[in-house]
């Protein structure tokens, strides 16, 4: 399973490096989202800094939708879906491989988004470990859920609209927990670094990630056959 996962992840990442869709389309989109939020909230840097954590995670959700749709589109070309099914690859390995590729792409995007948020919104990082750990754990959950829903809708004509409709509501816990943890890491509001409750929010992110990785490993095969 792990061998298959590495093979699929390598294939997806190589395709991304060649096509540069993330670099040429998703990164500018993410920068635009941050910029538009800044316009919407006005020039008040205090208001921007206070909203930075939430705006970051909303932007992450948007780019997750794009990254997942791109990942699913790779297998939606005529014949491509059958390629994976006929390849003999373990479906769980395919799921993990695609999830790993999406997560790695999202982490690169989050680094850029995080840097953009600090620059545009004037935020100051108080706790890097909390920031990084929450981002990574949250991203694993988003990547897993996105890959699962992307596969679920892959065979449908309405996949572009249905996938965000399915993914965004279930990603609400990540948005909530991620925002709380980033507020703490950025020293925003009442939740400073290391304040009580951070562990609980991190647990929410971890549970979300474990549930969706486990669910994906279990059901990706049947979903792939049915879609």
């Amino acid at each position: 399973m792990l061998r298959d996962a590495m093979l699929v992840a390598g294939k997806d990442l190589r395709i991304e490096l060649r096509s540069r869709v993330v670099l040429h389309q998703v990164v500018p989109f993410a920068a635009l989202v941050l910029l538009l939020f800044a316009f919407a909230l006005g020039p008040d840097r205090k208001a921007l800094a206070a909203a930075a954590a939430g705006l970051f995670w909303v932007a992450v959700l948007f780019v997750t939708v794009l990254a997942v749709q791109r990942s699913a589109a790779l297998e939606s070309a005529p014949g491509a879906r059958d390629t994976l099914r006929l390849s003999g690859l373990d479906p769980a390995g395919v799921f993990l491989g695609k999830t790993v590729a999406v997560v790695l792409e999202l982490i690169v995007l989050e680094v850029l988004l995080g840097a953009g948020a600090v620059v545009l919104y004037g935020s100051t990082v108080h706790s890097y470990p909390e920031l990084v750990v929450s981002a990574v754990v949250g991203t694993v959950g988003l990547g897993a859920a996105g890959t699962l829903y992307g596969s679920l809708t892959a065979g449908l004509r309405v996949r572009e609209t249905l996938m965000p409709f399915l993914l965004l509501p279930v990603a609400a816990p990540v948005l909530l927990a991620g925002t709380r943890l980033w507020q703490a890491a950025l020293g925003i509001g009442s939740s400073g670094p290391g304040v009580t409750g951070s562990g609980s929010w991190l647990t929410v992110l971890a549970v979300f990630a474990v549930v969706y990785v486990g669910l994906g490993v279990l059901v990706f095969g049947p979903v792939q056959e049915a879609s």
Binding site: R14, G79, D82, T83, L86, S87
Partner: peptide, 18 residues
């Protein structure tokens, strides 16, 4: 039987960027 079977379909089962 998937690993023991090879299929050449109507559409080329390939990834354009590889």
């Amino acid at each position: 039987v998937r690993r023991r079977v090879g299929m050449l379909g109507h559409a080329a089962a390939l990834y354009d960027d590889l």
